[in-house]
Design a protein around this nucleic acid. Structure first.
Length: 497
RNA sequence: GCGCCUCUAGCUCAAUGGCAGAGCAACGGACUCUUAAUCCGCAGGUUGGGGGUUCGACUCCCCCGGGGCGCACCA
């Protein structure tokens, strides 16, 4: 690892690239003179927790070392006040002649510079808790300007292209990403506590499956074959159930080669869980409990405010069948058995251009999505989707044209999708074939026949229920943000040119 | 992919078709208890790029690029 004469790194040029400034002599730039480590004793919030009770003007005599980024500098003659921010919060640095070494240098700190400072904790005469700087070190120089100290950075493009700037300049951005982190952590902990085993399944799939979506294609050189970035982990997770993992989950990235919108990023995080011996009614209870508990834990209440409206996530949630909701939205009582012609007419009346190949199930789904879904503030458990549009879900025990499937709708958007899993390999094959036919007719999002998965089913999948939750969407709900990019550290943007 | 909106100094924003400006940041100076906002001074721009109309374009028109929102598609 540490050759004395390292080989040239491929891709680097031995001579300076024309048009770029010459590389500085190694070891001489300011950035190379900063220390290799800094011994910090306290975070900013910890200093406040321990010393906020000091009286104005009181000196604690207790020395701490803090480190962070200089967000504000106020010079007052031979006094310098600086606001130091670290991951936990902010604390003021107070530098003065006779106490602070190299006060001259300290007074030249720029906004954005990283500093480590040691000194006693005291409270100024004006009552601001401060570290009275005795010794300090520059830990990183901010060579680039940092944005407006009052307005921060609000340019959306800068915020998402240079998230590191956004995160320092805008406290809210930090809070939102921190909340997302807690959502992920809490989901994991709650599932572990319930006995679910966390697993990891392939991201590179020979056949994209488990959802209806257009995949990204990539190529494996050694195998000389195309592979697809996964659009869902579903099929592999159910194969693990076949293998004996009776409660499994995976939380991870999936990739869908579709449009970008305030609610869609090409890569997003999904939580999928599978529980053997359970059906979709068990998962209704589970999803209600998970989401309401998360809201309580992370926002303090199961009633959350989203975009100016209240959402009461306390269980039980409203349960309504898809047909009922279509009826409410259109005033027409229809279901999956309604004659095709009537469904076509209804579809047309709500502004859908129905394709000739669509069956009654597809028509009903389209009508629901166009006329009903967006109006549901929720939370609502939308039950019993048509089997035709649910190729991996088990047929309803009381109606074979329906599937035992539900979606969770909150704020007009799908938050989760679940079903009693289709366990019959023959029926699964028939569903795959129907999908493949749709694919042959030009439906780029239809599934292909997955023989590997069918072979797994033939080894026996016990009664199983599966649930998928859009983690980004859940984070959006709890963080009360309207754009999915806010909850993704580095959302997809067109590359800079 | 289509439609609408938007792009001015490092940041946040101004400027009837008529000399491109302010605040903050930066830079130089003053100030021993400040709290985004002290005072004085000094700089800072191919107004996203290109073309057109005009005596004159940040402003009007066209093309291109980035971004936002909506539609479509989906979670």
């Amino acid at each position: 690892m540490h050759d004395s004469s390292p080989a040239p790194v491929p891709g680097t040029s031995p001579s300076p690239v024309p048009g770029t400034s010459p590389a500085p002599v190694p070891g001489t730039s300011p950035a190379s003179r900063v220390p290799y480590r800094f011994e910090r004793t306290s975070g900013a919030s910890e200093v406040h927790a321990r010393f906020d009770t000091l009286a104005s003007g009181e000196e604690s005599g207790q020395v701490v070392s803090v480190a962070g980024r200089c967000m504000l500098v106020r010079r007052q003659g031979r006094l310098v006040f600086a606001t130091l921010r670290d991951a936990s919060g902010s604390v003021q640095l107070f530098a003065r002649s006779g106490v602070t070494e190299d006060l001259e240098g300290f007074s030249k700190l720029s906004l954005g510079d990283w500093v480590g400072a040691s000194g006693q904790v005291m409270k100024t005469r004006r009552g601001e808790l401060s570290v009275e700087v005795a010794t300090w070190e520059l830990l990183a120089e901010a060579r680039r300007p940092f944005g407006d100290k009052w307005h921060g950075v609000s340019d959306v493009e800068t915020r998402f292209r240079q998230r590191e700037v956004d995160l320092w300049a805008n406290e809210r951005s930090r809070e939102v990403l921190l909340l997302r982190s807690r959502v992920v952590e809490s989901l994991r902990r709650r599932l572990w506590d319930r006995g679910f085993v966390e697993v990891e399944t392939p991201m590179l799939h020979p056949i994209p499956g488990g959802a209806l979506a257009k995949p990204f294609v990539t190529h494996h050189e050694a195998l000389d074959c195309d592979l697809f970035l996964r659009i869902a982990p579903e099929l592999y997770l159910k194969r693990l159930v076949v293998g004996g993992f009776d409660k499994v989950f995976e939380m991870g990235r999936v990739f869908r080669n579709e449009g970008i919108s305030p609610r869609h990023n090409p890569e997003f995080t999904i939580l999928e869980l599978y529980q053997a011996y359970a059906d979709y009614t068990d998962l209704m209870i589970l999803v209600e409990e998970l989401v309401s508990a998360l809201a309580g834990e992370l926002t303090g209440s199961a009633v959350v405010s989203y975009q100016g409206r209240q959402v009461d996530l306390s269980p039980p949630w409203r349960r309504a069948t898809l047909s009922e909701l279509v009826g409410e939205a259109t005033g027409e009582e229809v279901d999956v058995h309604t004659p095709l012609a009537d469904l076509r007419r209804l579809a047309g009346s709500v502004g859908i251009e129905a394709e000739p190949a669509w069956g009654s199930g597809k028509l009903l789904l389209e009508i629901y999505e166009k006329a009903a879904e967006g109006e549901l503030w929720g939370p609502v458990l939308v039950l019993d989707f048509p089997a035709e549009v649910s190729p991996l879900a088990r047929r309803h025990r009381s109606d074979p044209d329906l599937a035992e499937r539900f979606e969770v709708i909150v704020a007009g958007r799908e938050l989760a999708n679940a079903f009693s899993e289709l366990v019959d390999p023959d029926d699964q094959r028939a569903r795959f074939v129907a999908q493949a036919e749709a694919r042959a007719r030009g439906d780029a999002e239809a599934m292909a026949v997955d023989e590997e998965y069918l072979r797994a089913l033939e080894h026996g999948l016990p009664p199983t229920a599966g649930l998928g939750i859009g983690v980004d969407r859940l984070a959006m709900l709890l963080a009360d943000v309207a754009n999915i990019r806010e909850v993704i550290a580095f959302p997809t943007l067109r590359p800079e040119r």
